[in-house]
Write a protein that binds this DNA or RNA. Structure first.
Length: 376
RNA sequence: GGGGGUGUGGCAGAGUGGUCUAAUGCAUCAGACUGUAAAUCUGACGGGCUUGCCCUUCGGUGGUUCAAAUCCAUCCGCCCCCA
């Protein structure tokens, strides 16, 4: 089966949610899926072994970061990113498009591409759709992304339109570059819909991307500061114009509530730094809501973080101990909470999948949130 | 016995006449984080309320001064050196 192809297994009769299977060179991914982010080829503070324990099916890496360090030569010599980090499973690389947004003070955009100053040493680098494709081919992830501009929020309609058209133009160039060799046999290129929060732009972008016939589609330019309501409006304005038989990936999302709400509207794939970043900063997601484990109230709570969770952190340790680890700045604190949060997100998608099998998505969602918000 | 130094908010430690409720760091208390420049960042941190102001703080007491953490006297505590 072609890498990146999507098998639609079941559609909810209640909403837009769907159960599916994404085929990749290194394995099958059941959707809806949450993909932990390992920007530099490593999910921060967590070993590949531990990532497997969380039952994550596919992880992300960032081509911009890997290109800067260790560099493509080393990745090639290693035999590709999956061998380098010994994950050996499905992976996805982002194109560097998000860095146009997040490193905005270090770059200059023109229609040809983007000039970056390395955030590491200030050196100049140029990224274009063609270069991004070459980089992502060299890294060798199963799924690679078009080089786009992640449009900042807020943007004027005019800026958002030009940005969306630029990403469209770049998408064509990505395709041309991607399909000029045998990489297409082992990798899949996904297109990215832009258009900020403007429905017309989202529709236009989605339809034109659809015409380009990508293997899969992403909704980009969300989770950049807009409200949750706006984010859902974007999803609703985009999904109806994407082909049903292809995967839909909402980039950079999200929180548990975002996952439920987006799956409900027809999204299949997610990635987000939240479980790991917030984990490192002391915030845990639990079945009864968010917990800031650093807070004083947990100093003497000799009970697991989440009694419903069977991750390493919850199996072996108490809130009091995790609180102590954070207060004493022990490295283990970062690992355990990151691990827990990833596990939580994976379990959440498991719940969703199970509910879709029995066509009870809305009931499951209600059950989840009744508990999740019960403490607040 | 002689000489020198020092005492500041939970801790460390600036400040040596007004701009001092008193820098800074730590600790403490909370909040934020969405395709990772993040083990990060923000805010609070004497008390009161009508949130602008009022009251109370720099070892104790007394004084000088329009004004004292800051100067003087004295008491108390601690540290160092020489015998």
């Amino acid at each position: 089966m072609q890498c990146g192809s999507f098998e639609l297994l079941k559609k909810s009769t209640q909403c837009g949610a769907r159960l599916g299977r994404l085929h990749t060179t290194r394995g099958v991914v059941d959707t809806p899926v949450f993909m932990p982010v390992g920007t530099q080829g490593s999910v921060k503070s967590i070993s590949t072994e531990q990532i497997r324990d969380t039952k994550a099916q596919i992880i992300l890496a960032n081509s911009y970061h890997i290109y800067l360090r260790p560099g493509l030569e080393i990745i090639k010599k290693a035999g590709g990113i999956q061998k380098f980090n010994s994950w050996n499973g499905p992976m996805l690389t982002d194109s560097g498009g998000f860095q146009i947004f997040s490193l905005n003070s270090f770059r200059k955009i023109n229609s040809e591409g983007v000039e970056f100053r390395s955030h590491i040493d200030g050196s100049k680098h140029f990224l274009s759709p063609e270069i991004s494709m070459k980089i992502q081919k060299a890294i060798g992830a199963d799924i690679i992304m078009c080089f786009d501009e992640c449009t900042p929020y807020p943007s004027t309609f005019e800026y958002a339109k030009n940005s969306m058209l630029l990403s469209l133009e770049w998408a064509k160039r990505c395709k041309d570059e991607f399909y000029n060799d045998d990489s297409k046999n082992t990798q899949a290129l996904f297109g990215i819909v832009q258009g900020s929060i403007f429905k017309d732009l989202r529709k236009e972008s989605a339809l034109k991307m659809r015409d380009m016939d990508f293997v899969g589609y992403a909704v980009g330019g969300v989770s950049v500061g807009e409200s949750k309501e706006e984010m859902m409006n974007v999803v609703e304005a985009t999904v109806p114009y994407l082909p049903e038989n292809k995967a839909r990936y909402l980039m950079g999302v999200g929180m548990p509530e975002d996952i439920w709400n987006s799956v409900e509207r027809g999204i299949d794939m997610f990635d987000c730094v939240i479980p790991t970043r917030n984990g490192r900063n002391g915030q845990a997601f639990t079945s009864t809501g968010k917990v800031n484990i650093k807070n004083g109230e947990y100093k003497e709570k000799f009970e697991p973080l989440d009694p419903e969770c069977d991750c390493q952190a919850c199996r072996g340790y108490t809130k009091a101990y995790l609180n102590h680890l954070f207060r004493s700045q022990e490295i283990l604190a970062l690992t355990l909470l990151s691990l827990h949060n990833i596990h939580f997100m994976i379990k959440l998608t498991d719940k969703i999948k199970k509910a879709l099998e029995t066509d009870t998505f809305l009931e499951a969602k209600k059950e989840f949130f009744t508990k999740y918000y019960s403490n607040k």
